[in-house]
Amino acid sequence: MALHDTHYKHWEGRHLGIWSRRAVIAGQGLKSCLQVRWMRYIVTLCWASALLQVFLLFFLGQLLVADSIVVKWLSNLNPRLQAVGAALTGWLEQHPEISVRTSFNLLFYYFTSNLLTLTMIAIAISIPHLITRDLSSNAIIVYSSKAIGRFDYLLGKFATVVGLMVLTWLGPACAAWFTGNLLSPNWHFFWHSRLALGHTLLYLGSSMAILGILALGVSAISSRAKATTSLWVAMWLVGNALIPIAHETKPWLKHLSFSYNLEQLGLAVFQIQNDFRAAEQNIPFFGDMIRTIREQSRSTFDAPNLNGALLGLGAMMIISIVIIVRKVKPE
């Protein structure tokens, strides 16, 4: 008699395609990341930030509604702020296509830049869940023995980190754009703000791809979770610390910081210097404020160093890919 209930059955169903298997890897990775409590806090914080953005867009839209609470509230403020409100309202009424585009573009640049910090923290938490733990636990052997290749595995893991960034970065931004427009008094807001959405998608799309590859590279560098997480944080912080040093010494040192390079990329994509110029010309308060910005900062906005940034990011990605190719093997 058999020691166990040996009811082995053959399986005769239809196998799913390779894309669904890659999606399974991505889904499992994402689930594993979200099991970390701090990750859930960060995702919540990112969506809270989106809510704030929606509130600001709603505020902007309500300026066009004559008897809205926002207009009444503005009329009770001090004369200087009343003047700003009136100028903004006038600008919205006279040139809605420019004013909506400009204000959305500025807001989206500001929020996406800020969400980058939270996204970097989220990636730091997720790093061990990408490749590191598979290397330390030998799970990589199991992946390699299933009906998936190394490329499929990496694509799944890449989708994990991109999925995470969708939750912390792209998702809140797109949701804010859609909800902000939905709450606007005029359907034309959707059309006028299309450029801001385009800039956001372009910037976040390229940044997510770059950060995804860098995160995989760092995750693959060691099988020790603490080592890979520390390396990511160190790369980020040391890179940031290099920026002021680079100003004083060698300017190319700035490009060793991936957050600086991404910032340059953001400036080049959003082209906020045009928005500043438009706002400077149309809103007196804004003009005064912008004129007080130091010349150096203005030159940063006016001429982002895109070539240097792309070169820096490109070099980092190549190093990352080399690490992945060399390290992600069953043995």
């Binding site: 499992q28 733990r133 598979d134 330390s136 636990s137 030998n138 799970a139 052997i141 199991v142 023995s145």
Partner: peptide, 8 residues
């Protein structure tokens, strides 16, 4: 495989 290979 011979060695442990589960996902933690």
């Amino acid at each position: 495989p011979e060695q442990d290979c589960h996902i933690p």
